[in-house]
Computed example of a mutant assay.
Amino acid sequence: MRWYALLRPGDWLILALTAAAAGLLWNHGSGGDRVLIKQDGRVFLDTTPRLDREVAVSGPLGETVVEIRAGRVRVKSDPGPHQVCVKQGWLMPGQVAICLPNRVSVERGVVIYDSLNY
């Protein structure tokens, strides 16, 4: 006799609801992903990587263009001479691209919820 033969219709319902709740919680857990763009040390934009857009940030040398597409973030163009922040490519959570001559930084971070603050 198989173990699933011992389950009643109510047991199957509980299993299905538990699996659905686990799926919703798993998907909700990625909601803390943030993109933080700073210009000269001040917050220029704090957004989610889920919104596709290009953001132009003005600095002393010109415009730095940040691309947010399909949940990914990168510095698309920068007027700096060495293009270090552009060469970094797509940022992973926890990484930062700093365009130092133009005083622009792009941070892809994960918001950590601290239960001690509540």
Rank of each mutant, 00 (worst) to 15 (best):
Q88E: 14
R74Y: 08
V57P: 03
D11W: 11
W3G: 05
G62Y: 07
I98H: 02
I98R: 02
M92D: 12
D78E: 13
L7T: 10
G31Y: 08
R69H: 13
K87I: 07
G80S: 15
L116T: 05
E67M: 10
P9C: 06
C99Q: 03
S30K: 11
R42M: 10
G31V: 01
A16K: 00
V96P: 01
L17M: 14
L36I: 11
L45H: 02
V110K: 03
Q39W: 02
L13W: 11
V43E: 12
V43K: 01
I68A: 09
D40W: 02
R42S: 14
E63D: 13
R103L: 14
D46G: 04
G29A: 15
L7A: 15
L61A: 10
V55S: 06
S105V: 03
N117A: 14
I98Q: 01
G80Y: 07
L91G: 02
V35Q: 00
G23D: 07
G62N: 10
E63V: 03
R108V: 02
D52W: 04
G29D: 14
T48P: 01
L51W: 07
D46S: 09
H28P: 00
I14M: 10
V86Q: 09
P60T: 07
I14G: 05
L100V: 12
V55F: 07
V75T: 08
Y118C: 01
G89Q: 08
V86Y: 11
S77K: 06
R8A: 14
D46K: 03
P93N: 09
G59C: 07
Q95Y: 09
L7G: 09
I112L: 10
Q88N: 05
A70H: 11
D114G: 10
S77T: 15
C85H: 04
V75R: 01
M1L: 12
P81N: 09
V106Q: 06
S58D: 15
R53Y: 09
D78Y: 06
G89P: 01
K76F: 14
N102F: 07
P81Q: 12
M1C: 08
A70T: 03
W26K: 01
G89C: 05
G89R: 00
L25T: 05
L61R: 02
T18C: 10
E54K: 12
L45M: 11
P93C: 06
L17W: 13
G71W: 05
D33H: 01
F44P: 00
V106R: 01
F44I: 05
H28M: 07
L91F: 08
